[in-house]
Design a protein around this nucleic acid. Sequence first.
DNA 1: TGCCGATTCCCCCGTTCCGGGGAGTTGACG
DNA 2: CGTCAACTCCCCGGAACGGGGGAATCGGCA
Lengths: 224, 224
Amino acid sequence: MPDTPLRVAVAEDHPALRDSLLRRLAFFPAVEVVLAAPDGAALVAAIAAADARARPQAILMDIEMPTLDGVAATEQVVQAWPGTAVVMLTVFEDETRIAEALAAGAAGYLLKDEPAETIVAALLDAAQGGTPVSDHVATTLVRRVRGQEQERRGAARRLEALCLTPREREVLTLIAQGVSDDAIADRLFLSLHTVQSHTKSLYRKLDVHTRAAAASTAAAFGLG
Amino acid sequence: MPDTPLRVAVAEDHPALRDSLLRRLAFFPAVEVVLAAPDGAALVAAIAAADARARPQAILMDIEMPTLDGVAATEQVVQAWPGTAVVMLTVFEDETRIAEALAAGAAGYLLKDEPAETIVAALLDAAQGGTPVSDHVATTLVRRVRGQEQERRGAARRLEALCLTPREREVLTLIAQGVSDDAIADRLFLSLHTVQSHTKSLYRKLDVHTRAAAASTAAAFGLG
DNA sequence: TGCCGATTCCCCCGTTCCGGGGAGTTGACG
DNA sequence: CGTCAACTCCCCGGAACGGGGGAATCGGCA
């Protein structure tokens, strides 16, 4: 636990929500709101204007904001002041928004119905390198990873069902990378004829009749 | 809160850990361990042998187990008895294991250093359709999604940097799907010559010299 | 031992692709 | 109104590909 409170900034365009947030955070001595901005541009400007030692260590960021939305603002903030922990605080819980925010550099992602205690804990956690997320957000992440992994496994099973020989798999991988037959022959120390023989088998098993289609199918299987 | 305790099964091969777990869970009236197994096969057999009304509603599952590991056991359990909430309880926190377990149908994923209260809460949560995960697991999921999204965005930016014309992008997408030039001509109501003209531009911009390489590059950009 | 799949190599022929060239039309933008 | 980018269409020659055939070797398995 730090002796001094964590310096926090708040970016939220809706005045009522912003004030409510500030009032609720004021009860917690562990955090001190040093900055509040109605949009992303104002936030970035205010941080830049602040004394380096007074700059916020953590930021509560709304997503929907005029002039510069939360995702873009997050990108700029973590770019300009690395180490700043940005925690999104929004009503949006769709996968796309969450992924975008995280990719932009957000450390955590909270939904707006969280109690103040949770928000404060999340700020402190994020400042320590944690990744605080609401339960619903965690569920969304789990669903996404689960879906992706199941798709990957499905592709692997379909690939398995083709009964490709090791050599064929090898050749297919190179085809998927766009390597020509004689380049494949060079890489695998084979004759061009041999490679052509393997590609013929591959086309039969994959049920394709062009090289690009084979590459496309291989990509769908996760090869390459 | 249910009037009757949640019926829970425990699958854990290490006897000491299993006993410890059972002892710790015994303090919580909200859960009742109805079944304990030393491996996945035994777990599945025990569930199958049990009376349908006495079957566990939630399962604490270790990953490393003999005869049938936790992931495979989870797959069988959720296949055979849908609605069963499986919560992984393991020391492994690597992305691969987590993703595999979730794909197999695990509802939650806890690390073994969690206190008993958390484990019980996770079981109850999972039984209600939640996805309880340890903080470290959430961090891993966040990192994965963040990495994927950043990769996606990077690919999109690189694609953007190529300054493809709309027509070229269209043609490239079809190339990535393995469509031949004259098939593209048919689909886009163009002359073969026109399509060839576009592909020529594409090869120049993509800096490739074969169709399959173009398809491969396009796949890397997320097209197709 | 005999069979079978995997791997390797070879031939041929027609098609498609690749890379170079040129040229006309259209629409936007200064 | 000129310019420029985008789109369209065309020709050609050399290279690669697609599909058909055959054949030899090797290892495993019945």
